[in-house]
Amino acid sequence: MSDAGMSDAEDILATAAGWRAAGETVALATVVETWGSSPRPAGSRLAVSASGKLAGSVSGGCIEGAVADAARQTMQSGTPQLLDFGISDERAWEVGLACGGKLKVFVEKLS
């Protein structure tokens, strides 16, 4: 498994913390498990703000939209979510996981 320590040269957590400190509502999405040819290793992060800012990534771009939607739900509800993307998942067909991999993404609010 690749490490996220070196691949994430950008410190997404610091970026998200900065938004939060500036008074934004922020959610953080983290890849927690991958199978097959997922482009980003476990530990990769995407930060989303209520005003629409995005930093980082959890895939090559194919599921970012769906994850950002889930992030907005979590910002409102405060409840974390565990998202499952894969070719057996109907929603993944919709968003198009073109890479053919499977992955799980955990979404949490920065409270």
């Binding site: 320590g5 983290t30 927690v32 290793p41 476990a42």
Partner: peptide, 18 residues
Amino acid sequence: DDAAQNASLEGEAWFVHP
């Protein structure tokens, strides 16, 4: 290993992020 792990404790899944 500088690599994320999946662990389980008492039937609960944990994500371990270095």
